[in-house]
Amino acid sequence: MKKTFNHSVKEYLESVSLNEKQFEQLMVMQERYVYKPIRRRRKKRLPWYRIAGFGSLLLLGIIVITMTDFLNVIDNNSHHYGHVSSSVIQRIADEAATNHLKMKPLEVESLEISKVQGYFSNLDFEPYSAQPLASNVQIALVGGRYCSIQGSKAVQLRYKDRQGDYVTLFETAYSTVLFEKLPNIDRGETPVVTYTKGIKVSMWVENGIVLISTEKFR
């Protein structure tokens, strides 16, 4: 019997159907979803006391972190500069380095420290025969002259090393107003060392006198 192609296809496909077992399985699957609908998570509201608790903890955390940072900054400053602010250190170093570089003529020239010290009679402190913190220990005194550091009357003693480079040692009376709390090597503290204008500047307090040593940076 001849039929149209569409009709034949329809007839052929209509003979295809699910068997009882397959149908049952699909019905069971559907029932499972009907009777056990997908649980949707409800957004739980946190009680006010929990929100307040979390807020307090967060605030406390921020305060602790801020305070720790603040204390670290203070601690870092004290560690490096012996309770001297970095701006004071920089100011002193700049002035000492400038004086070192200018190489103004010496007012007294002698290889003996006693003769040079004897020249500085117009001071409010007794010049101290300290050794500059020079990298090269083979240095010899050349002479000295009056100068000022941070507006305070000071002396500068000029030394020369074997390579012909000069090392300058500045001495002035110690004042906490001008120099804050520079490291005191009498208490075992380490001198502050900084670099400016190509010059290595070391500063410390020894026997109540501020000593600033400058030399060419090697």
Binding site: M1, K2, K3, T4, F5, N6, S8, V9, E11, Y12
Partner: peptide, 16 residues
């Protein structure tokens, strides 16, 4: 155009 084609069941299976 597909409806114009007359076909028997056996041939329909082959075509399919």
């Amino acid at each position: 155009t597909l409806d114009n084609i007359l076909i028997n069941e056996e041939l329909a299976n082959i075509v399919w």
